[in-house]
Amino acid sequence: VLKALERTRQLDIPDEKTMPVLMKLLEEAGGNWSYIKLDNYTALVDAIYSVED
C-alpha cells in the first residue's frame, strides 16, 4: 500500500482519492497485487483518473 501511495503522491494525487480506488481494484483483483503493480501502478493511476472524469 505504501508504494502505491508513494507513486500517486508523485503525481499530486491525495491519499483520500487513492485509497478508495485502490481498495476497489484490490477487491476486483481478488487481492492480487500483480495487476495493480504493473508498469509502476499504471492501472491504479488510470483508475483514479477515470473516476475523476
Score class of each variant (00 low, 15 high):
Tyr41Ile: 05
Lys37Cys: 15
Asp15Leu: 04
Thr42Ile: 13
Val45Asp: 00
Asp53Asn: 14
Thr42Trp: 12
Val51Trp: 12
Pro20Val: 12
Leu2Met: 12
Asp12Cys: 15
Leu25His: 00
Arg7Tyr: 15
Glu6Asp: 08
Tyr49Lys: 11
Tyr41Leu: 04
Leu26Thr: 01
Leu11Pro: 01
Leu26Glu: 01
Thr42Cys: 08
Gly31Asp: 07
Tyr49Gln: 11
Asn40Glu: 06
Thr18Leu: 03
Leu25Ala: 02
Tyr35Ala: 13
Asn32Lys: 08
Tyr35Arg: 11
Val51Asp: 12
Glu16Ala: 09
Pro20Ile: 10
Arg9Met: 04
Ser34Val: 10
Lys3Cys: 12
Met19His: 05
Ile36Glu: 02
Leu11Val: 02
Leu5Ala: 02
Asp15Met: 03
Asn40Pro: 00
Thr18Ile: 06
Ala47Val: 04
Glu28Pro: 00
Val51Phe: 11
Lys24His: 08
Gln10Tyr: 12
Val21Lys: 03
Met23Pro: 00
Met19Pro: 02
Leu38Asn: 14
Ser50Phe: 10
Arg7His: 09
Ala43Gln: 10
Met23Cys: 10
Ala47Pro: 00
Ser34Glu: 15
Lys3Ala: 15
Ile13Asp: 00
Gly31Val: 04
Asp53Tyr: 14
Tyr35Met: 15
Gly31Glu: 05
Ile13Asn: 02
Glu52Tyr: 15
Tyr41Lys: 00
Asp12Trp: 09
Leu44Ser: 02
Gly31Trp: 13
Asp39Val: 05
Arg7Val: 13
Val51Ala: 14
Glu27Asn: 10
Asn32Gly: 07
Gly30Cys: 12
Asp39Lys: 09
Glu6Pro: 00
Leu2Asp: 14
Asp12Tyr: 11
Ala47Trp: 04
Arg7Asp: 05
Glu6Asn: 08
Ala47Asn: 05
Ile48Glu: 03
Ser50Pro: 05
Leu26Tyr: 04
Glu16Pro: 05
Leu5His: 02
Glu6Gly: 04
Asn32Met: 06
Ala43Met: 15
Asp12Ser: 14
Glu28Met: 11
Leu26Met: 05
Ile48Asp: 01
Ser50Arg: 14
Val45Ile: 15
Gly31Tyr: 12
Gly30Ser: 11
Pro14Glu: 07
Tyr41Pro: 00
Ala29Trp: 15
Ile36Thr: 01
Asp53Thr: 14
Trp33Ala: 01
Leu5Pro: 03
Val21Gly: 00
Ser34Leu: 11
Val45Thr: 06
Glu6Leu: 10
Leu5Asn: 01
Leu11Lys: 03
Val51Leu: 15
Ile13His: 02
Met23Ala: 08
Glu28Cys: 11
Leu11His: 07
Glu16Ser: 12
Ile13Ser: 03
Glu6Phe: 07
Ser50Ile: 10
Leu44Ala: 00
Glu16Gln: 10
Glu52Arg: 11
Asp15Ser: 03
Gly30Gln: 13
Lys37Trp: 11
Glu27Arg: 12
Ala47Thr: 06
Glu28Gln: 13
Glu52Ile: 14
Ile13Glu: 03
Ile36Cys: 02
Ser34Cys: 11
Ile36Asp: 01
Leu5Tyr: 00
Ala29His: 15
Trp33Asp: 04
Pro20His: 11
Ile48Ser: 01
Tyr41Trp: 10
Glu27Ser: 11
Ala4Phe: 05
Lys24Cys: 08
Tyr49Thr: 10
